[in-house]
């Protein structure tokens, strides 16, 4: 069987993106299970150093395409390199981050290789499959598991007959884990001119405004999240106040973001970020499946909700039946009086 590949996205600052490191961690496990190697592809300019960043994640081979024309990212040259490389290497599995780059690039690659691609997977597993009609069995397929249909169902997608099996995964969904600090792989420098043609550079970037990484609630240990039930901006301030005293970040449901109560970067869930803090305090959040998809891995969950039957209560460790406007000030007050 052939190897597992991860497309390593390079950030504006020239490092390997978090999501790619998370995918290397997952890729390492999948490769281990299949008894194959883990390979990485990085494309950019002046990126020799990324080998040091990826090897501890257990990368056996790093394919490097280093050329001044390859940064900032543009679709066609990156796609040509990946398509050319994959035609030679015939990967078994390929993982991309579900970022604005990954979701621009992966479909283009899948179309050229005529293979399947599953967007926004929330879990990846290895398993077998028997075709119900023909009885034909397939060993060791990649189960690509994702919420579908607005999150009302969870679908397991497979690609029985085509290779590679490709998937995109959002940042924060997989866990980042160092494989071994001393692990050393091999670097293969790609001859860029072999893959890209002049016409790949027809789209010209004339201006860029990239903001430094803003607010990042993904790594917060404690999250106080507000939903539509918080109701008003005044009540939402209570969340900031509690977050401030207990050292937490503020998150939000999509309904709260849509209502203008919180910025989009704070949105947690299927179309927002995925978080796994040690404590998640859900305030006035009903717990729609799209929201839970981004927070149900939290170690402890507290739900503050007027409705005893809110779905979120079923996954909460503690349920406070009450009004956020009444409960939050009490929590703040107790903490101020009793900490330290």
């Amino acid at each position: 069987m052939n190897n597992v590949f991860v497309y390593c996205e390079i950030t504006e600052e020239g490092h390997v993106a978090e999501v790619s490191l998370e995918l290397l961690s997952k890729g390492r496990k999948l490769a281990g299970e299949l008894g194959v190697k883990l390979e990485a592809v990085a494309i950019g300019s002046g990126i020799e150093k990324v080998s040091q960043e990826v090897f501890p994640f257990g990368v056996d081979v790093l394919h490097l395409a280093d050329d001044p024309r390859l940064s900032p990212y543009r679709t066609l040259p990156h796609a040509s390199i990946i398509i050319g490389l994959f035609k030679e290497e015939q990967p078994e599995i390929v993982l991309f981050g579900a970022t604005s780059i990954g979701r621009d690039l992966a479909p283009r690659v899948a179309s050229a290789l005529r293979c399947g691609l599953t967007a926004d997977c929330t879990a990846l597993e290895i398993g077998d499959h028997t075709e119900p009609k023909t009885g034909k069995t397939y060993k060791n397929l990649l189960y690509q598991i994702r919420p579908a249909f607005g999150g009302n169902i969870i679908a397991t997608i497979i690609n029985p007959d085509t290779r590679p099996q490709m998937a995109t995964v959002r940042e924060g969904v997989m866990k980042k884990e160092i494989h071994s600090a001393n692990h050393k792989g091999k670097v293969k420098n790609l001859d860029v001119s072999k893959y890209v043609k002049e016409s790949d550079f027809v789209v010209e970037i004339i201006e860029r405004h990239i903001e430094p990484q803003k607010l990042n609630i993904k790594n917060a240990q404690i999250i106080v999240a507000g939903g539509y039930g918080v109701g008003t901006p005044e009540n939402f301030k209570l969340l900031y106040e509690l977050a401030d005293v207990i050292g937490a970040q503020v998150g939000a449901s999509r309904a709260a973001v849509d209502a203008g109560l919180a910025e989009h970067e704070r949105q947690i869930g299927q179309t927002g970020v995925t978080v796994r803090p040690k404590l998640y305090i859900a305030c006035g959040i009903s717990g729609a499946v799209q929201h839970r998809a981004g927070m149900d891995q939290s170690a402890q969950i507290i739900s503050i909700n007027k409705d005893p039957n809110a779905p979120i209560n079923q996954i909460a460790d503690y349920v406070i039946i009450g009004d956020v406007a009444e409960v939050l000030p009490k929590m703040i007050k107790y903490y101020k009086q009793n900490s330290k």
């Binding site: 599953t118 189960y143 690509q144 919420p147 999150g151 969870i154 690609n159 499946v289 079923q314």
Partner: peptide, 14 residues
Amino acid sequence: SPTKVKKIDNVVLQ
């Protein structure tokens, strides 16, 4: 279509 739906689970809360 290279992608096939192997299985659909309705979302049930644990």
